[in-house]
């Protein structure tokens, strides 16, 4: 690692101020950033830890919305997001137990790894990404692999998930990293079904609109029977071809629908 200055502010305001410096970077749980720094692929002058900001931690549910503080760990979401069981279940399978004790939802969404789990939940839930400056709809937030609507120095302080009538997340593991080779999150709301896919596309997390339309009409696995995902934009690598990923999207979506009930 290149060396850097480490600061751990206690408030969002102090964190924003610290991030105003050139080459300062926010540190969530560090489960992705620290390995990146070890490879010397990033050289921040200052790391601003968000782990000391109490107002950014915790899970609460009210009026059909689950709010998760940006610095809340996956482990905490797994334990405390009982109001949104599919989300708690997703969080309980990110990485491994030790990673879940450090990694945070804000860190995951800010990084927007194309194989991460949380982006699919946020997008399928039509979640709102709350930052120190504004609120961003999930549909506007994800802008391709490792790319988001966040401005320089902007911090995710919370994520608000409308709680669906039914939902499920299906993850098919990439056997080495244990990230999603493909992950599909299906959420059924009164006004329709949303399906978000992670791991599969060169463009990062995406909504499978044909499936959404079919499932909004009829929320059954069989409703997907005639649908196929175009392999053209899928990721192809040593763990699976484009065609295989496209195939898995269909299988996992069906399974998510069946599991969601």
């Amino acid at each position: 690692m290149y060396n850097f200055e480490f600061v751990k502010p206690a408030s969002v305001a102090d964190a924003v101020a610290a991030l105003g410096e050139e080459d300062a970077q926010a540190l969530g749980g560090g489960q992705t950033l620290i390995p990146t720094l070890k490879q010397r692929l990033a050289a921040p002058s200052k790391l601003v830890s968000l782990s000391g900001i109490a107002e950014m931690k915790g899970v609460s549910a009210a009026d059909g919305v689950l709010s998760v503080g940006g610095a809340t760990t996956h482990g905490t979401v797994a334990a405390e997001a009982g109001a949104y069981p599919a989300l708690a279940d997703l969080a309980s399978h990110i990485g491994d137990p030790a990673v879940r004790n450090r990694g945070t939802i804000g860190g995951s969404l800010a990084n927007n790894d194309p194989s991460a789990c949380y982006p699919s939940a946020a997008l399928a839930s039509g979640a709102t990404i709350v930052t120190n400056a504004r609120e961003i709809a999930a549909d506007d937030y994800f802008q391709g692999m490792f790319t988001t609507a966040l401005e320089e120095g902007e911090i995710i302080t919370a994520v608000k998930f409308p709680i669906p009538e039914a939902a499920n997340y299906q993850k098919f593991l990439q056997p080495a990293s244990r990230f999603a080779l493909v992950g599909v999150f299906v959420a059924k709301y009164a006004d329709g079904v949303r399906v978000a896919v992670t791991g599969a596309s060169e463009d990062g997390v995406f909504r499978w609109s044909e499936a959404e339309a079919a499932l909004s009409k009829e929320f059954r696995g069989d409703a997907l029977m005639d649908l196929k995902v175009d392999p053209a934009n899928m990721i192809g690598d040593l763990h699976g071809t484009k065609e295989y990923r496209a195939h898995l999207v269909g299988v996992l979506t069906k399974r998510a629908v069946v599991a969601a009930g």
Binding site: P175, A176, S177, D237, L238, H239
Partner: peptide, 23 residues
């Protein structure tokens, strides 16, 4: 079932960490 040490045509090791070499 899992392990595979793979080089691409330019001789770069694709499975160069536990992120891609499945233990």
């Amino acid at each position: 079932l899992l392990e595979n040490c793979v080089y691409d045509d330019s001789g770069q090791l694709l499975s160069a960490s536990y992120m891609d070499y499945a233990m």
